[in-house]
Amino acid sequence: MNIGSHRHVLSGFALAVLTAVAAGPVAAQTTRASAASVEKLVAINGAQKALEQAVGGIETQVRSQVVMSLLQQNGGAPLNAQQQTAVNKVVPAVGAVLRREMGWPNLKDPYVKLYQAQLNQDEVNRLIKLYEDPGYQTLMQKMQTVNLQSAQLIQQQLPVILQKIQPVLEDTLKDALKQ
């Protein structure tokens, strides 16, 4: 073999090494996130707490809807003792089913799989680092306050908006009924 062919073999080898080195970070970035790291992420990002709050909210809505339904059946009269007892019995029973079926022990594995399907290991690591950052935690607490106050602001504006929508709806219905 002459020097030229050695250079060709060496340059091919060098190209292969450089390609492997360059591909290394890409391969690392696309590594599937481990279940343990995703579990850590969902533990610190509040997914479990949010799920538990959602279940509590659904239970509250169920109570409200049951009471409203009974009030309608009563023609708007207050619930009698038997109806109130029924509400006090059924709502906790429904809540127990919700907590059992939508509780963290039941949904933890599907949550982990969902995160693993969407995020690679590098992304999970970056998110964990972000969620553990005290500055980020402070910022997120402030954003929760902003979101809560924004919802309250919209809630305050809703009666005014509905009042302005009412004539539009009435006019539209009148026009539709003329035809």
Rank of each mutant, 00 (worst) to 15 (best):
Q149S: 10
V67Q: 10
Q144L: 14
P25S: 11
L119R: 00
K49F: 02
Q163P: 09
M68H: 15
A35I: 05
W104N: 03
R99D: 07
A93E: 15
L15N: 10
V55G: 08
Q121W: 00
A14K: 07
G12M: 10
K164Q: 15
V160T: 13
N74L: 07
L119Q: 06
L173C: 07
G12A: 11
Q61S: 13
M140S: 13
K164M: 08
G56V: 05
K89C: 07
L158Q: 13
A47L: 09
V146E: 03
P25E: 09
L79A: 04
Y136L: 08
P134G: 02
N45R: 00
L15K: 08
A43Y: 01
V38S: 07
V21G: 05
I44D: 10
Y136F: 15
Q29A: 13
Q137V: 14
V160C: 00
V17Q: 03
L153T: 12
T138F: 00
Y131H: 01
A47G: 01
L10M: 05
T60C: 12
Q61I: 04
V17I: 14
Q137T: 11
M68C: 00
A36T: 12
R63F: 08
Q157D: 06
K89T: 15
A36L: 07
A35N: 12
E170R: 13
N80P: 01
L127V: 02
N45Q: 02
L71T: 04
N125G: 09
V94S: 03
D175M: 12
Q144I: 01
Y131E: 01
Y136S: 06
V55P: 05
V97P: 05
E123F: 02
V112S: 00
K164P: 02
A35Y: 10
D133A: 09
Q163E: 15
Q116T: 13
L177A: 06
L169I: 14
P134W: 04
